[in-house]
Computed example of a mutant assay.
Amino acid sequence: MRKRIIAAVICTAMVFSAAACGTKKSTEGTGGEKSKELKEVSFVLDWTPNTNHTGVYIAQEKGYFEEEGLKVEIAQPPEDGAEALVASGKAQFGVSFQDSMAPAVAGENALPITAVAALIQHNTSGIVSRAGEGMDTPKGMEGKKYATWDMPVEKAMLKNVIEGDGGDFSKVELIPSTVTDEVSALQSKSVDAIWIFYAWAGVATEVAGLETDYFAFADLNPVFDYYTPVLIANNEFLKQDPDTAKAFLRAVKKGYEDAVEDPKGAAEILCKASPELDTELVQASQEYLADKYKGEVEQWGYIDPARWNAFYQWLNENQLVESELPENAGFTNEYLPE
């Protein structure tokens, strides 16, 4: 784990050489006078820009960060992901997932990271397949080719829902593969079933006109309605500079609430920031997520302790983590704006 952190620091040192927690930079006004000093903050994505991240780009575009006295740099993640970079302190904030965080927040080698906000209130992931081939329920995956990341938690969850549907997980053909184009993979029949986040890959199949079947993990077992994705922060940064952490989250909150109110405008801002994205896909994805960023909660970003703990308890009971995860491990609502 320590080697991963060191590697992440080295490969991203140039990206963040100008940004460090506590650094301030003054800007020049139109008349040459110095304007408000801005504190520099680094934010690292979990993947390429997509609609999970829209609220951050809105906060950047509309000046919400600057209103809070912040200058925010948004960067792509290193190969090891956002967790290692945030843990190293080279980025103050990043994007992660409750399931992938689990090995990192317990035990002697725990990474100093904490989830400080839920970017989406419920787990929108599940299994997509070509329509009409019997995989609209988990049992139907028997004898079919599933693209696996070959991760213990992934396979344990799949086994749980298949056996819960009366199926035999051992009859699923596991094909080690990291699918980046779900539409092409299904159309070519290189695989039959793929674990996706519906807000992006599921919507992409709709935009492409590919008829699919789909089932969501959260619909089959409430334990699997965990938080994915989440916004994480460096623990030392949270301790030393809580006011900046709260200022960052206030700005981000405004961004996501704007995305809820105006999906079309939100899509335009994301496409402006990342012009390589498919405009039709982004627009459809924003419409899909508009009522899911906050869901039923009043407070943007709120993490329900009962739901968070239920998933980690399931990991403990199934011995899917090396060190037992204690109650409330790895998250806090302390820095959320009211």
Rank of each mutant, 00 (worst) to 15 (best):
A273S: 12
L38I: 01
D192N: 12
A82M: 11
Y226N: 08
E66C: 01
F331M: 12
A216H: 00
Y57P: 07
F331C: 09
D304T: 00
Q76W: 07
V128S: 09
S17T: 06
G143E: 01
Q319V: 05
T244Y: 04
T114H: 06
L45R: 09
E182Y: 06
N333P: 01
A267V: 03
F217N: 02
V105G: 04
E257K: 13
P242N: 12
V321H: 06
S26L: 11
P305F: 04
A59S: 14
G164P: 09
S96T: 09
I303H: 01
M14S: 13
E276M: 01
V203A: 03
G301P: 07
L70N: 02
D291L: 00
T178W: 08
L277E: 05
D168F: 03
T205N: 10
K90M: 13
Q283E: 15
K24E: 13
F97S: 08
A251G: 12
R250T: 13
V41Q: 04
Y227M: 04
A106L: 05
P77A: 05
E280I: 05
L210Q: 06
L38W: 06
E73G: 03
F215E: 02
V207C: 07
I232A: 05
N109T: 14
F217Q: 02
T180V: 10
E67K: 15
A329S: 14
A245W: 08
L277G: 04
A284Q: 10
V15F: 02
A115V: 07
A329N: 09
G32I: 14
T137W: 02
D192K: 06
D213S: 11
C271L: 10
E322H: 13
E327L: 13
C21A: 12
I127A: 03
E211T: 08
A273D: 06
V15T: 09
A201T: 05
V179H: 12
G140P: 06
L289G: 00
W47V: 02
M157R: 11
A251L: 05
A199P: 03
T205K: 11
Q319K: 15
Y227F: 14
L45V: 03
A7V: 09
Q313W: 01
D80Y: 14
M141W: 01
G31R: 08
E79C: 00
P112K: 07
I175W: 00
A13C: 06
M141C: 10
P49F: 11
S177Q: 04
Q92A: 10
M101A: 10
V161Y: 05
K155A: 03
S323A: 15
S129Y: 03
I162P: 00
E37P: 06
G134I: 02
M151H: 09
D243R: 09
M135K: 04
N318K: 15
G209W: 05
A266W: 07
G301A: 10
C21R: 15
T30C: 00
Q92S: 11
I303M: 14
K90N: 14
A216E: 14
I58M: 13
Y302K: 12
W149F: 14
L174Y: 04
A233H: 09
E61W: 04
A19K: 10
F311P: 02
V153S: 05
E33H: 13
N309M: 11
N234G: 05
K294I: 10
W300C: 02
S88W: 05
L158K: 03
K254Q: 10
V41I: 15
S100A: 06
A102L: 12
K253S: 14
